[in-house]
Nucleic acid binder design. Structure first.
Length: 294
DNA sequence: AAACCGTGGGC
DNA sequence: TGCCCAAGGTT
């Protein structure tokens, strides 16, 4: 059931989105579902500006799931470059393989089938459903959560983890009309990305400022539990990143001694090499060499 | 279910 | 400068 307030909110977001939407290649009318899927995986925890050049390279090189599936997973990891979280490249390659083998090379439209693909969780399944096929899914990412927390709940930031009340609120706010639902999903995300930002929101130009509960309450600060930032210096993640960067830089297998140049601490280095092998991001080669997976 | 998994830019 | 955050998923 859509209330009058919700309809007003929807119209304001839709009107704003029709004017202010960024011209992103995965939003082009001729972008394939595969192109949308690749963008969604790349955009997980990764800013748009960093994704753009890599996405273009991937779509030019592998225009269909079958094209990527025909490559080695190592090539996917190499082409992932410095986007971060390289297991995404591995899972995207695995998803392409499943799509090629079990879905006749076509990205599935059913959210349940999407959700079953490696690397695709609730958000990405809904996003592909909505953005690739125009289906009326409920897309809830960090942007949507923040916009709803502010506009509808009057809070500076959403809870630490997505809960049922939030999902219900998000679902209630999706327009019933199919076309409006698709535009709403894209529009709320866009609003969160470029207006209702986490750090410095630009409320002065927000299209829904007159309906924002957070604004009405006088912008109360975040009052939830402290958010613990992730450590970085000296962590296994930093070590793994340094090791993989060396592996990406050359086609040939790399001797273990060269990996030692990338990370001095032998114990941590060996632990991380082992974890990269276990993750199938790394492969042992003859004579104490290592390479990206073939 | 808390912890882990990369990377770089903005403030 | 250091800290926070970016279209999350998996275990």
């Amino acid at each position: 059931m859509t209330s009058a307030v919700e309809e007003q909110l929807q119209s304001e977001v839709l009107d704003w989105f029709s004017r202010a939407a960024r011209d992103l290649p995965w939003r082009a009318a001729d972008c394939s579902p595969w192109g949308v899927l690749v963008s969604e995986i790349m955009l997980q925890q990764t800013p748009v500006v960093r994704v753009l050049p890599v996405w273009r390279e991937w779509l030019a090189r592998w225009p269909s799931p079958g094209d990527l599936a025909a490559e080695s997973s190592g090539e996917a990891v190499r082409a992932w470059g410095r986007l971060g979280y390289p297991r995404r490249a591995l899972r995207l390659h695995a998803a392409a393989t499943v799509i090629a083998q079990d879905h006749d090379g076509h990205v599935p439209r059913d959210p349940v089938e999407l959700r079953a693909l490696p690397g695709i969780g609730e958000y990405t399944a809904a996003a592909v459903s909505a953005f690739a096929f125009g289906d009326p899914a409920t897309v809830v990412d960090t942007n949507v959560r923040r916009v709803l927390a502010r506009a509808r709940s009057g809070k500076a930031l959403p809870a630490m983890s997505l809960n049922r009340a939030e999902m219900r609120l998000a679902h209630e706010n999706v327009p019933a009309d199919r076309e409006r639902a698709a535009a709403w999903n894209a529009g709320v995300m866009e609003l969160g990305a470029i207006i209702c930002k986490a750090r410095s929101p630009v409320c002065d130009v927000c299209p829904i400022r007159s309906h924002c509960a957070w604004r009405a309450a006088g912008y109360p600060p975040y009052d939830g539990p402290p958010r613990k930032g992730q450590a970085w210096d000296g962590t296994d993640r930093q070590c793994r990143g340094a090791l993989l960067q060396v592996l990406r830089s050359r086609d040939e297998p790399i001797p273990a001694e060269q990996l030692a140049l990338a990370w001095a601490d032998a114990e941590q280095r060996e632990r991380c090499v082992a974890s990269l092998v276990a993750d199938q991001l790394l492969q042992e080669a003859p004579a104490g060499h290592y390479r990206l997976p073939g």
